[in-house]
Design a protein around this nucleic acid. Structure first.
Length: 455
RNA sequence: GCCGGGAUAGGGUAGUGGUUAUCCUGAGAGACUGUGGAUCUCUCGAGCUGGGUUCGAAUCCCGGUCCCGGCCCCA
């Protein structure tokens, strides 16, 4: 019996690995052109980093362990928390905004299924300390561009949490997590029944989450105007999984507590709905195709403004390939509060649907007669300064080397034997056409370098 | 954690309780020490695992592992 891979992990064979790294390079190219700098953090962190962000219930889904010094550690289940930890630890004093991106493997203890593994890769970006609408539009436009560059089309759904938080404030705190969960899970009937049961229908919540597409924003304004007529208690915070948050995030409007009966426009301003409108308008300027969708809530308390998700077609049950939004995490990790906008892309799900035009080019092959092996090795070493090239290490004869070169799908073969060494020119063979030319080494290197540069 | 379907050479597969477990592909050697993916010959290589039923199990039954699809969850 051979040793198997651990459950939920994968091997990437050469072809897969090439596709993955090619796609990653294309995506990183876009991020670099938008001025984002790559960062990288440890594969494991203190468990507390993740429970602080997502609540103690995440321990169930995390690979955690005690090390030999008795420390509680965890393989990272995501990368936003580590990156923000790094920011708080080491980058708080650099000029804002800070544009960072990351690519790395993450680990979750979950039941594997399509598009879900125990070791998976995330690529994401964070823009720290920017002006909210501008940052939000940039983040969404950026991820849109990243996906375009690898020929992935997805539906971008953009939502906004300000209004929902305000409506939730009119519901008793013990009911809030459940309501939020039902919205997130799109359980409409359950939600309706539950709202009736707790006497919270008529707050405009159902109307709000049904708003989709072009007119959604205007209609949201009118719902907010209706809200303005009623008393507006303090906005609330919802904790994940019903856990009690020990780290309540300050809401922008908490100082407004107690004020009553305001005009709708004022409420809208206070909720940042005008800011959301700016975000939307900037998205139009960027030329992004999106749908306004107030049903996107991303059930987590640290999201504070615009939130968005992207869904790909042809992926089965796990079709979300991107999630992001504006959040407040710095204070939670012991830093000065700074709002950030970011997104994470599920790299593996993207790899399930990606179609790349390019294919890996096979290296050139240097075929030699066994009597000139030592000279052939020196020539190969020179050529490798410029082009990918392999040489026989099996002790094969000339004919067998040719056969092997053909099997490798090599497009070019360089022939070296006594004739070549005597004449000072090498023979370059084009394997497709079968034509051969006698050329100096330098000329061959130059020609092939061109062929391989546009790979 | 739950439901359903699977697992046979490196990859893809056939077989139905009973001889030496099929076929394709792959890999290595040779025919062939200066010219190709062909051909021929030879070689390598397999019933996930542990129990049970049976004279006999790759085949039937049970447990486990892993894979696939879905549920739960999804930072």
């Amino acid at each position: 019996m051979t040793i198997q891979r651990p459950r939920g992990t994968r091997d990437f064979l050469p072809e897969d690995a090439w596709t993955r790294s090619t796609a990653r390079k294309i995506m990183q190219g876009v991020l670099e052109r938008w001025g984002y700098q790559e960062v990288s953090t440890p594969t494991f962190e203190h468990l507390e980093l993740f429970t602080l962000k997502s609540g103690p219930s995440v321990i169930e889904e995390i690979y955690s362990f005690k090390d030999k010094g008795g420390r509680d550690l965890a393989l990272r289940p995501e990368l936003t928390a580590p990156v923000m930890r790094m920011y708080v630890n080491e980058l708080q004093n650099v000029a804002k905004p800070l544009r960072l991106y990351y690519f790395g493997n993450c680990f979750r203890y979950e039941r594997p299924q399509r598009g879900r593994f125990r070791e998976f890769w995330q690529l994401g970006a964070e823009i720290i300390g920017g002006n909210k609408p501008d940052s939000e539009a940039e983040a969404i436009a950026l991820v849109d561009q990243v996906l375009r560059n690898i020929n992935i089309s997805g539906e971008i759904h953009v939502g906004y949490l300000g209004i929902i938080r305000t409506i939730l404030a009119r519901i008793a705190p013990e009911h809030r997590p459940q309501v939020m969960r039902m919205i997130d899970k799109k359980e409409r009937e359950n939600l309706e029944a539950y709202l009736n049961e707790i006497g919270a229908d008529g707050l405009g919540l159902r109307e709000l989450i049904n708003l989709k597409g072009k007119d959604a924003l205007d209609k949201a304004f009118s719902i907010v105007e209706d809200l303005g007529a009623a008393e507006a208690p303090a906005p609330c915070v919802v904790s994940p999984g019903g856990a009690e948050p020990s780290h309540v995030t300050a809401s922008p409007s908490s100082s407004e507590r107690g004020r009553t009966a305001r005009a709708g426009r004022e409420v809208a301003a206070e909720l940042g709905l005008d800011e959301f409108r700016q975000t939307i308008e900037l998205l139009d300027s960027y030329g992004v195709n999106y749908t306004v969708d107030f049903e996107i809530v991303r059930g987590l308390e640290y999201y504070s403004g615009t939130v968005f998700e992207i869904y790909a077609h042809g992926l089965g049950a796990q079709r979300q390939i991107c999630g992001g939004g504006t959040y407040e995490l710095c204070r939670l990790f012991g830093g000065a509060e700074t709002s950030s906008t970011g997104f994470g892309l599920g790299f593996d799900r993207i790899m399930e649907v990606i179609q790349l035009d390019a294919k890996r080019k096979a290296p050139a092959v240097l075929v030699y007669t066994p009597d000139v092996k030592k000279a052939a090795v020196r020539i190969a070493k020179d050529l490798r300064e410029r082009i990918p090239l392999v040489i026989d290490v099996m002790g094969r004869g000339f004919g067998a080397q040719m056969k092997n070169a053909a099997n490798l799908r090599a497009e070019y073969v360089i022939l070296v034997g006594k004739n070549e060494l005597d004449s000072g020119n090498l023979t370059l063979r084009d394997m497709k056409s079968g034509t051969q030319e006698s050329l100096p080494l330098e000329e061959i290197a130059k020609r092939l370098a061109e062929k391989y540069s546009c790979a």
